[in-house]
Each structure stands twice: as structure tokens, then as C-alpha cells.
């Protein structure tokens, strides 16, 4: 196990260099000069020339890459071209918003999705099975943008149960230590703030959860149905266990492997940001950061963000792989 873990972590190094190189090349291949984009319609030739010099864009590409590589290895991701902020600071400020939202959305998606899937499988071909699976299909195909606006209109604007947008009311003072607002509120024992954070989380999390929820529910159902047809389950039933007992004690664990894989992949991709949800709910997450940075040709920021997202994705997948061994004793990493 230890050796396996070590090997997997070592594999991060080529991934790291690969991502650095690929992102560097792609950003440079994309047409559009950051100096021109930044200065917009108003650019004067002198301003463009001066900005290119300041940004080091007049160097040859290999020199730019080596400089970038050298700095990155030392943990310096550079400064954002647009805001002049250190890329690392920018990422540290924005990632927690995404992590909080991802976590909340996946909590809803996994909880509701697995429960729905299990009931649908246990009562295959019942009305519940039919309705839930058709609903899941809807959830999967619903445009997020439309759903988000509808939720806001109904639950925030019309009924007034939830705030419309943002992460926290400006009237509430909260010391931001981790930038995970819920954690910050708990650390400060500020229960009013914690409640306010949760209320802000509900609508965007529900919006973001619909697609993974649908996938998880359908995956749980089909995987569980497959397991329920296996011999050892028939044996368990023959021993006189109730259907509930069979599912809970024998079938579920084995059925979880593909479900965990799906959850892992979804967590990984949600950590890359959810641009539509973030835009509708004015959520200051990493998705908007990356998209804005790409449009602004903010090379250092794009590079830094993609690097961190890629590393997180690999780490989440590693966790998924490790969970296989826990779920299925036949899987051993040596």
C-alpha cells in the first residue's frame, strides 16, 4: 500500500511537467496578444509595446518557458497580467468558493442519487422506479442556466426563502481565515453567519447537483441490479435474509465501485469550476476565474489555475482508486 501510494505520488511529477508544457504551448498558440486584449479598443501603439516589454512577451518562447518552469518549481506562479495579483494568492482566494460549492453539490447528488438508485433497484419496474428514472433523465438534460434562474425566481425572488446570489450577506461580518465561509463561521462560533452561508449555498448547490445526481442515481440502480443477479446474493437470500438486509449488507458495497468512480470523476470536474452556476449565482469560484483569464489571455493565471486543477483531479482519482481496495477486499495494491 505504502509503495503503491509512493509510486502514484511520484507519477504526479511527469503529470505536473506535462500540464505545464501543454498549457504553456496552448496559451501561446491561441491567437490574441494579452497586451492588445488588456488594452482593448483604446490601445495606443506605445502602450502595447510598453506592456509587452513589461510582461516579458518579447522574449523567445523557449526562454519564456524556461523562466516560467524555473519560477514554478520554486513555487512562484507569477503575477496575473490583468490584476497584477500573485497567481497563488488569486487561487487561494477563489478555490475555497469552488470547494465549498462542489462539496455541497456532491453531498446532495450522492445522498439523494444513491438513495434514489437503491430504491429504484430494489423496486425494479415499480412506479417509483419509472418516475425517478425519467426525472433523472430530465435532470441530466436540463439546461443549468435555465434551471438556476427558475430556482432563483421561485425560491428566492417569489417565496423569499433564500438569498438570490452571492456567498454571504454584506451585513454580516466574518473573519475570513480559510475562505471556506462555512468553516470560517464555525471557527468564529458565529452561528448567524453559518446559517447565512448555508442559506446562500442551497440554490447553487441544488442547481449544480442535478447532472451528477441523475448520473449517480442511474448508475447506482444499474450497478445494484447487476449485483443482485449474482450467485452470492441468491445464496444470501436463500439463507433467509430480508431483501433489505441483502442489499445493505451484501450487495451495496460491491455495487458501489462504479458509483464511486462516477462521484470521483464529477468531483474532479466540478473542482475545475462550474462557470454557468457561478455566473448565475454571482459565485466567485474558479470557473469564472479561468474563463475570464482565458479571454484576457492572462497566461500566468491560466497556467497556474490549470496546473492546480489538474493536480487536484489526479489526487481525487487517486483517492477513488484507494477506495476500491476498501470496498472490494479482492482489490489489493502492492
Amino acid at each position: 500500500m505504502g509503495r503503491y501510494l509512493g509510486r502514484r505520488l511520484l507519477e504526479l511529477i511527469p503529470v505536473f511537467f506535462g500540464v505545464l508544457l501543454v498549457v504553456f504551448i496552448i496559451t501561446r498558440l491561441t491567437p490574441g496578444d494579452p497586451a492588445v486584449v488588456m488594452l482593448g479598443e483604446k490601445a495606443t501603439p506605445e502602450a502595447v509595446a510598453r506592456l509587452r516589454e513589461v510582461l516579458g512577451l518579447n522574449e523567445t518562447l523557449p526562454v519564456q518557458f524556461l523562466r516560467y518552469l524555473g519560477r514554478t518549481v520554486q513555487g512562484d506562479l507569477g503575477r496575473s497580467i490583468q490584476s497584477n495579483e500573485r497567481v497563488l494568492v488569486e487561487l487561494i482566494a477563489r478555490f475555497p468558493a469552488t470547494i465549498e460549492l462542489t462539496f455541497a453539490a456532491m453531498l446532495i447528488a450522492s445522498g439523494v442519487g444513491i438513495l434514489t438508485g437503491v430504491i429504484a433497484a430494489a423496486r425494479q419496474n415499480s412506479w417509483f422506479d419509472g418516475v425517478s428514472m425519467i426525472t433523472a433523465l430530465f435532470g441530466f438534460s436540463m439546461p443549468i442556466f435555465w434551471l438556476g434562474i427558475m430556482l432563483i425566481l421561485l425560491f428566492a425572488s417569489y417565496l423569499g426563502w433564500f438569498p438570490i446570489s452571492g456567498r454571504l450577506d454584506y451585513t454580516i461580518d466574518l473573519a475570513r481565515q480559510t475562505n471556506l465561509y462555512f468553516v470560517d463561521a464555525l471557527l468564529a462560533r458565529n452561528w448567524a453567519a453559518a446559517a447565512n452561508v448555508l442559506r446562500h449555498l442551497v440554490l447553487p448547490a441544488v442547481t449544480l447537483s442535478t447532472v451528477p445526481l441523475a448520473i449517480i442515481a442511474r448508475m447506482t440502480r444499474s450497478s445494484l441490479l447487476e449485483v443482485l443477479r449474482q450467485d452470492y446474493v441468491r445464496t444470501a437470500r436463500a439463507k433467509g435474509l430480508t431483501e433489505g438486509g441483502v442489499i445493505a449488507r451484501h450487495a451495496l458495497r460491491n455495487a458501489f465501485i462504479p458509483v464511486i468512480t462516477v462521484i470521483g470523476l464529477n468531483v474532479g470536474s466540478l473542482l475545475g469550476g462550474a462557470i454557468l452556476t457561478e455566473t448565475i449565482f454571482a459565485w466567485p469560484g474558479i470557473g469564472r476565474l479561468v474563463v475570464d483569464a482565458i479571454f484576457a489571455r492572462d497566461y500566468p493565471l491560466v497556467q497556474g489555475a490549470v496546473l492546480v486543477i489538474a493536480l487536484l483531479f489526479v489526487l481525487v482519482n487517486l483517492l477513488v482508486d484507494l477506495s476500491y481496495a476498501y470496498l472490494d477486499p479482492r482489490i489489493r495494491y502492492g
Binding site: 506605445e46 502602450a47 510598453r50 497580467i81
Partner: peptide, 10 residues
């Protein structure tokens, strides 16, 4: 120098 001063020459 503030980073870009995009309007200075204008």
C-alpha cells in the same frame, strides 16, 4: 510602475 498603466500614454 503600476503594472501596465494602460491609459498613461493616452
Amino acid at each position: 510602475f503600476p503594472g501596465a498603466a494602460p491609459y498613461a500614454s493616452f
